[in-house]
Nucleic acid binder design. Sequence first.
RNA 1: GGCCCCGUCGUCUAGCCAGGUCAGGACACAGGCCUUUCAAGCCUGCAGCACGGGUUCAAAUCCCGUCGGGGUCACCA
Length: 519
Amino acid sequence: MIVRTRFAPSPTGYLHIGGVRTALFCWLFARRNGGQFVLRIDDTDQQRNVEAALKPILEGLRWLGIDWDEGPEVGGKFEPYYQSQRADRHRAAAARLVAAGQAYRDYAKTEEVQAEREAAEKAKQQFVYSRRWMAETPEDCARFESEGRQAVVRLKMPREGKLVIPDLIRGDVEFDWAREQDHVVQRADGSCLYHLASVVDDHDMEISHVIRAEEHLSNTPRQIFIAQGLGYELPQYAHLPFVAEPGSKVKLSKRKLDKYLKNKDFAQLVQHGQKIAEAVGLTVDMDTFNPVIVDFYEQVGYLPGAIVNYLALLGWSLDDKTEHFGIPQLVEAFSLERVNKAPASFDPKKLMAFQERHMLEVPAEEKVGLVLPYLEKAGLVPRGDETATIKVRRIVEAAGDRIKVAGDILDYADFFKPDNELSYDEKAFEKRIRKAEDAADLLKKLREVLAGAEAFDAASLDRLVHGFVEAEGINIGQIIHAIRVAATGKAVGFGMFDTLAILGKESCLARIDRALAMV
RNA sequence: GGCCCCGUCGUCUAGCCAGGUCAGGACACAGGCCUUUCAAGCCUGCAGCACGGGUUCAAAUCCCGUCGGGGUCACCA
């Protein structure tokens, strides 16, 4: 049997991190087993601008490297891949269900069923639809229609017996048919509901494994009933635990950002992203710029491989030690048997740890490519400027692992600012230059030493400054902090000699002069 | 509330099916080392089998119950 899995998002305009995890597991399973991964769009007739709402979803998946063998933009032998365009097949299936006696035309009004439901609730009894407006013969139909009623199609669900769903992750899950309702599968206007459509499409597209989030487990009995009524062979089911809120077991939701912001780590993740986004002129609309949505990570400069690695480990593990995976290794190692049952909460800190780990493996040259767009968008570097690229390369190398996400390059924005526009951190200036003993005098002397320097590379500067320190009989700490603040305006940064070398003699002197003038 | 799912350090997890080495790893946290700051790195530490009964020589592991958390109960997807 050929393994075929599918991810079926509805075009909401954004890609939810939990959705990605589901897509990833579907994709990994298909890839691992030499099968196919299908992307189907579960849109509805009501939805407008499907194309626009779909775009971020497709882009997000592609960015992460989750490619689909069939679906939007790539086509496939089971076209169309938009549920709304398959309505005819859904209607035909509904009709077959009715013809087979597995479903019936029901002329009840919504309020009438609702009244029955409420009555049962009031009596603290399980609601069972009376089927009072069920029409099983043409005569019934005619009679109800003469009353001006319209029919929906309801499933004629069994009212006794048990159903066992074999779930690849949860084992056998047992349900009582009697707990199920006569669910509506087709509206009076002929349009069909999700559960019917989904079952029909999965069958038509020859989906072998339905891998989806746990919230669908409770819906599975009715889907099985539909599939059996239609004479389909059942797919294998696997219900994934969902991705939960930080520090909780509640399903992660895009809408509860305010709540998550109270979580220290989550807030930090957002702030870090915001700082970068603002510097490059992105609108930080919380509706889209939100760590629950995948776009966030792309915009801030995370590595797709790091996101995938982290997400894969959220609910799946290979063994007791392996955590670092590239995508090919994940494909190689993935199995549904090792998927956890319990929900896993989203941990911003751990995500960042994976990001750092993956960033370590990016060669400097490649990193320059990742980082450059941020400097360009922030207006610090002109597009396609060769000289600037060389400088960026030197900064990237000197900064090393300090650049955790591509946008972190903006921490070094001061390297690109004109010397007279450099702003000084007031606290650092106070502590390291104004208050530090002899700092200003030493700085003045060192300035002259630097001015006379013949070579301005890091190694030469290292020798030069150490020579100066020795001659003055001081500790290097007594001068180096002062130079740092004078040259960069900040108290922290990467290696001092690298910093001076990258800045160049002219800038260094200009900045020191400026600092001295401010004492 | 009914039904279903789940329950190992703060978090992600290994171990459970085939009971038996101080319950292992990672992130985070704390302390230390290194060091011109920061970051990284290295070392050390802190911290968990939800609870209660069984079964057994022996239970995180098997059985029963309790509690807790979550999901789902639409003419939404």
